[in-house]
């Protein structure tokens, strides 16, 4: 499954200017609201609720906030690159500059977990993350995300 089936080209934010976690999730919720049709507030609450269980930062400057959003049709992904890294209480202490948000419909169960695992594994690849950091604009980022798919499958098998 290519990663681009989770992210639409318009769900990429190339240079998000935020100062802290709350602001970042608010901005991301606003963007996600455009594509999913759910309210900004609702999406923000879902993401914050998961953050309360523990940080979703996975190290190396990457975070994957996620949660279950009722009444959406399929898993929705959004990628945001931060203008300036922020502290998200990662285990390795590194501030985060790449955020991948994943929202799953109720009862997505196994699909939700699989999608999360795929994204986590993909972003852990330092070369891949650096390509995302170096990409010039939204299109370039999307191209990197689209490119990732074949190599990812190769690695997994």
């Amino acid at each position: 499954m290519p990663i681009t089936d989770l992210v639409a080209p318009q769900a990429v934010i190339p240079a998000l200017k935020v100062n802290n976690k709350k602001q970042a999730l608010q901005e991301i919720a606003a963007k996600a609201s455009e594509s999913t049709g759910r309210s900004e507030r609702e999406i923000f609450d879902v993401l914050m609720q998961r953050e309360k269980l523990g940080s979703t930062a996975i190290g190396n400057g990457i975070a994957i906030p996620h949660g279950k959003l009722p009444k959406i049709e399929k898993i929705f992904g959004l990628f945001a690159r931060l203008d300036r890294p922020i502290d998200l209480e990662a285990l390795d202490g590194q501030p985060v500059d790449l955020i991948f948000v994943l929202l799953a419909p109720e009862q997505a169960g196994a699909d939700h977990l699989k999608a999360l695992a795929r994204i986590a594994r993909m972003l852990r690849d330092t070369d891949f993350a650096n390509k995302l950091r170096d990409a010039r604009d939204a299109e370039a980022i999307y191209a990197v995300l689209a490119m990732s798919a074949p190599t990812e499958i190769k690695n997994a098998s």
Binding site: L53, G54, S55, I58, I64, L91, L116, A117, A120, R124
Partner: peptide, 14 residues
Amino acid sequence: AEPDPGALGDFILP
């Protein structure tokens, strides 16, 4: 060098 990234899990839970 973390010996094996991901070996300790993807997310941290208190």
